[in-house]
Structure formats: C-alpha cells, structure tokens
Design a protein around this nucleic acid. Structure first.
Lengths: 136, 136
DNA sequence: CGCCATACTGATAACGACAATCAACACGCG
DNA sequence: CGCGTGTTGATTGTCGTTATCAGTATGGCG
C-alpha cells in the first residue's frame, strides 16, 4: 500500500516551487534550511518515485549529477535550459519526434525513444556577461 | 610538449575497434585482458583527451556512467543507439540543428547547444526477442 | 479509541565512478 | 649518454547515489 506522507508532499512541493532543475542534494539542503527534518535518502526516494510516476523530469548534468524538475504530467516534452541560471522552458517538438522515429526506422531500429535537450543562455543571462562567473 | 605514447594509441585503437559506446572501465578491462598493462587513470586521461580533441564522442548512460566511442572528427553528428546490443549509427540532423537554434531564439536564448540521441532496438535485436534478457 | 501490521523514514555504511596525488619512468633532445 | 619533463599507474580521496536496518508513523480494523 502507498502511504501519504508529509515528506513526499514536501519534496513534490519544493520541486514545484523551483523554476529550474535541482539536484537531489540541493533539494534536500533547501528543505533542511526551510526547517524540515527530512532525510537525504527520503529525498532520493521521493524524487525517483516522482520521476517514475511522470510528475518529474530528470536529466544528467555535465558532472553526471541527476537533476530533477516538476513537469506537466503525462505529456511528452523537452527542455530549453539556461546554462547559467538554470531557467527552464518546456518545449514541444513534434517535428523532432517524427524525425527521430523516421531515422530509427530508416536504420531498421524499432521502439525508438530519444533524449533531446537544448542548452543556452537565457535573455537575462545573455545580457549580463558579468553574471557568467568567469570574470578575470 | 605532447608525447607520443603507446598507451594513448592503445586507447584510440581500442575505441576504434568497437562498434558501440564503451565505458572507461570497460575499455580498461578490455585492454588489460588483451595483455596491456595500461593503468585505469591513463585510460580516463586518454579518453578525456580524445573527447576534447573531437576524436571521440561521449554520452552518459542511464546509471550516470560516461560512455565513449570513436567518431568522425570535426563533424557534428548525433547517434542512433541500440538499447540492447549497443550498436551505434552516426546520424546527421541538419533539421534538428536548425530547430534547436530556432526554438532557442524564440525564447530569447543565445549560444544554443543541444543533446540529441536516439535509442531503440536495432534490426537484429528487434528480430530476436529472446536476446532481450527479460523473457517472461 | 487504541492496536497492530507494515510501509516509510533517516543516519550511516557501502558502493561505484571518477579525479587527484606522487614517486618512478620513458621519451625526446642536446 | 645524461638530463628535463611530460606521462604513467597504484593508490587514495571525493562525491553522488543506493542499500541497510532499526525505529517510527500511517492507516485500517476491532
């Protein structure tokens, strides 16, 4: 049986109140700082569950860290992510979906799935080179 | 000065003689079994160098492992990867490149880059359900 | 309302991948 | 041949994630 725990809710809530992708550890730290006594392992579990149930999307950062973000459930979409501030925009890509399946078929592949994410600098970060953090 | 060592060559060679993506540790193990006395750290270094120089492509496995594969140097391309046997086909996707930049621009993003990989089952694995290992 | 079974929690240990360390070494050059 | 230095490789450390396991809270039921 699946129980209804405040911890699960806390993670879901923290995820929903975040604009970009967050790491499990970052989320845990944020919750702790907000006064919660939630455990790290629980955050990992909750995030894994959320991702499995389709309520959260996950991707891997450059360093191999898993990042999570709340997403529109039951809808296939991709992400446009700001490399600097983490701002994330959900994007749809019917054309890309079609292309992926076509390419797969052309090569005899079946059961095609795909990973498609676009990284860049959002308008604000593009306009603020100083914020890029590589100031000499 | 950059030296010409047999280790670097061994890694490059091992990478080239492999059809799909390999993990650093897998490659190291393979070289060891082939009689080489190359060290694990050296394999990591060589792979990182190769990837930096554009002679190898890298992607992250589901478990967060970094996988490498030899690729056509200096050319931007993506991959169609068999989920079962690892067979990899290089694919070009001008349309997707254009789409990615367009979507980024539409949302005010600059310096767009993207991750695009397609997974599926290759013709052989599609025809051999028994090989999928989850016989039920 | 209180009890019980059990799913869940959370601190910690284990684990795996990877990076850093550092002495020994080999390559290339004079 | 001998020197300088980039490279190697065994080992250690770091970091993210998962497993462990006893304690706890949840929710159904008497």
């Amino acid at each position: 049986m699946k129980r209804n725990t405040w911890q699960r809710e806390a993670v879901r809530d923290a995820l929903g109140s975040n604009e970009g992708f967050v790491s499990a550890q970052g989320l845990h730290q944020g919750l702790r700082e907000a006064g919660s006594s939630i455990g790290l392992a629980t955050v990992y579990r909750a995030l894994a569950d959320l991702a499995t149930e389709g309520e959260a999307d996950s991707l891997q950062s450059d360093q191999g860290e898993s990042l999570y973000r709340a997403c529109t459930p039951g809808q296939h979409h991709h992400h446009l992510i700001c490399r600097n501030c983490g701002l994330t925009v959900e994007i749809e890509a019917d054309a890309v979906e079609a292309w992926a399946h076509e390419v797969a078929s052309d090569n005899g592949f079946t059961q095609a799935s795909h990973i498609v994410d676009v990284f860049g600098l959002c308008a604000r970060c593009s306009a603020s080179p100083a914020a890029l953090g590589h100031g000499a």
